[in-house]
Amino acid sequence: MAERTDPPNPSGFDIELLLKQARTYLAFGEQLQPLSERFHETMGQSGDWSEALRQHFDEFKAALAGAANDPDGHPDLARLWTVTLDTWRQAAAALGVPTTLAPLAGANGEAWRTYQKVQDQYLDCLRQAARDALDLMEQRLSERAATGATGESLRELYNLWVECNEQTYGRMLRGPDYGVLIGRLINALLSCRASGGTPA
């Protein structure tokens, strides 16, 4: 009576999920590599890790902020903060909204504009949480360094980045405004569908 996944993918696992996140991890590493290089150079010259971190972490934040402002420009790096948005787009696609975010054919113009506006607000929230996470990560690195601890590996730094994002995102998620916003987002999307829109 055991249940089995259906062919053609024998395990049923969507390997693209793994590949996407792997590419994101690699992009994270590629961003950290020059940062590490400059950090160690500065350390060699001045020995002041605090100043070295402050100087060079800003560059890392700027790179990620750039990806946040233009996700299509560097999709693998952008996925570091658009992971929630990607999940939302998949859900929206299941409701019949194209993931390209093009207007629905036949959708009421006002409903569609409202949806776009709310989605922009949602994106702003995600961006802000991602920026806050980088500030928190810098703070954690400084705290660790003050106690003599160093992140020994790229993986450790990635795990710290995840932890910081979960913390700032979680704070946003549980805040009073987010519940209202996610409600408006879903309601706005439904209004587009209700107004007769179909996938373009």
Binding site: Q21, T87, L95, N159, V162
Partner: peptide, 23 residues
Amino acid sequence: PGQLLNFTFLSLSPFRLAGQKYV
């Protein structure tokens, strides 16, 4: 749709559940 439920559950901890887990 079940996918909307998936979004809700994943969105509770997206960086772990949709990112780090696969790394």
